[in-house]
Write a protein that binds this DNA or RNA. Structure first.
Lengths: 186, 186
DNA sequence: TGCATTTCTTGATTTAGGTCAAGGATTCCT
DNA sequence: AGGAATCCTTGACCTAAATCAAGAAATGCA
């Protein structure tokens, strides 16, 4: 079944809905569940209906680096794996109990065939992700740790309620100590 | 006309080619030409057939920050503008004389309709871009300036022949002085 | 409820890379 | 070819944030 949020937002006509609905599967997963594990090949496109996913990788020296967080109403997949069918470097783990929809890569062609509305919508969300990544990149390159922290606090205050600080630190590209110090001064 | 590289790589059947070929326009632009200027709304998807594009933005304090470079055989557009029809923050300028193809956003639907091969290919390249951005982000957050420089030198040595050093410095997220110093030691 | 584990904070010290400044080397233009 | 921009290099100094270390707080679990 197609998630109601997508039907509304992407304005998927009900004629499309009948045809592509069966391609989507609904899942309820608990906190701690891995959607994708590093080293595996990912052939699934996920849609987060409710919940929160942390995407991270492990560095050569064994540290975990949070690449980013994805919240409800986002598509996620391992970009470095999905099309190329190579093992991904990333882990996708749920930080909250979540409702997730999945679409298999093998059904993508059918989806493109049967619903332009959804195809355009996925294009759209992918470009938004690219825009977000580009923004993050500019931030981490040319803003101070303090500015990045203040901006996150301004733009996504709820993340501080939902995610432990060490993950946020590595998302910001700083150490937990530095984050702690910045929080201390008002 | 569809660029030959795409026809081959995306395996676009000649039946599709006839239908979507007319949607693409070929351009020859000189070094220094702006494909996209910040503040404008971008409704065009470009494909770089030959050449090199520098994508940069201007910070609050008036500095230019190179987000990244795109070389031949890449699709480029202002992700923060294309779908949302909001003014982009980025400039796309040619660093070499280039052959560029363009597709108007208004023709995207037709393209999706007429060629699944190309639609899939554009999905594919967009995910590759997202993978690249994610990689860059991890690099800039958790590798030293020196490591980032060495990696770039290893992975894309030709960029040093094609692009001036101050642009490469801001791509790496360092100052020109630091880049110069790193080049000096062997 | 109480113990153990994990997470967060605070302090002292170090360092990578930034800033400022001035001299060379290129490139561009007529 | 010669002068003017622009770009790159080198040096001296400084600062933001990392590292190392140890205690406090929160969370999980029997």
């Amino acid at each position: 079944m197609l998630p109601p949020y997508i039907i509304e937002t992407a304005k998927v006509p009900s004629s499309d809905e009948e045809k592509i609905g069966p391609l989507f599967k609904k899942h309820v997963f608990s906190k701690g569940h891995f959607l994708i594990r590093e080293g595996t090949i990912c052939k699934t496109l996920f849609f987060i209906d409710t919940g929160l996913v942390r995407i991270y990788r492990t560095t050569d020296d064994g540290n975990e680096v949070t690449a980013f967080f994805m919240v409800e109403h986002s598509f996620v997949t391992a970009f470095d794996s999905f099309y190329k069918s190579t093992p991904t470097k990333y882990n996708f783990v749920l930080l909250e109990d979540s409702v997730i929809y999945s679409l298999q890569q093998s059904d993508l062609e059918t989806m493109i065939d049967k619903s332009h509305a959804l195809t355009k919508f996925i294009f759209h969300t992918t470009y938004e992700l690219a825009a977000r990544l580009t923004e993050l990149l500019a931030n981490v390159k040319f803003r101070t740790a303090e500015e990045r922290y203040r901006n996150l606090l301004r733009d996504s205050p709820s993340i501080f309620q939902r995610v432990q600080l060490s993950y946020i630190a590595s998302y910001l590209g700083i150490t937990p100590e530095t984050l702690s110090r910045m929080r201390a001064k008002k």
